[in-house]
Amino acid sequence: MNKSNSVSFKLRKTKLTPIQLISKIILYVICIAVAFMVLLPIISLIISVTRESSEIDAGFSFQIGTHFGDNLTGLIDHLHDPYEGGYSIARAFLNSVIISVSSTALCIYFSAMTAYACHVYDFKGKAFFEKFIIFLIIIPGQLGAVGFYTMALKLNWMDTYIPFILPAIASPSTVFFMRQYLKQNFSREYVDAARMDGANEFITFNRICLPFIKPALATMALFGVISSWNNFMGPMTFLSKPELFTLPQIVNYMTNDAYIQTGPYYMGILITALPMLLIYFFLSRVIMKGVSAGGLK
């Protein structure tokens, strides 16, 4: 790879002709304009939460205000209103954290386990099982929605977090990703060595394999947390008690709430979006790598 890079392309460092210069400037202008278009809504959100409600209502502006604290307390007070039946932004935040962390933990642990089984053992039906997993990836999940909803009704799973957490155990795309990673990075010899030392199979997986595939686990954990945090349809389907609401649901609730002021409302939106923005800010490279490896659909 390196060899071909060094041989290829004698980059011309000669001066640009006027046409080349102009076209280069145009390209930069396009890039910056698109970047501005992408960032504008996010910047406007951040500016909005610092402004007073009446200022926001009056129209869009880049003027930064001084009402950040007021909006935050306004949001907390509004959602603490006993009339609202127990809505609270802190509670919703906690609910979102509980759901995304537990579902992600189950997802990556059991996916790694399944991928490990496919990688290390030669069991009957292995070839079929592996093909089956790939087949499952392309099946749209929407087909099961009605059946899952009625099943949850029968089993009294409405207003619990079971419908979001337990199904995460079977995540074909995560298994596929882990399997690819194991193929490239994890040699069976490690397992044989552990066996020589008399380690139990289960302990071998936990102590030898899991630490080894940490990068893959981290990538998939990021995707799991992001998709679970942003999940809107699931909570809308299964949760009706306000104290169980997740953040996207709170946002939806506030949208239909005539009594909330605009400032606190935008603060609620910022609180919902901020954790993902922070994760992206620090870990964008891991996320992009995962995307290019086909981690996220």
Partner: peptide
Amino acid sequence: FKFVYFLPNVLTAATVVIIFRLMFMRG
């Protein structure tokens, strides 16, 4: 540029809609 262009992908759709309502809102 890559960092910026990919950024919206991690945002919650629920929040995105409301931000865009501000963007498209008629005052």
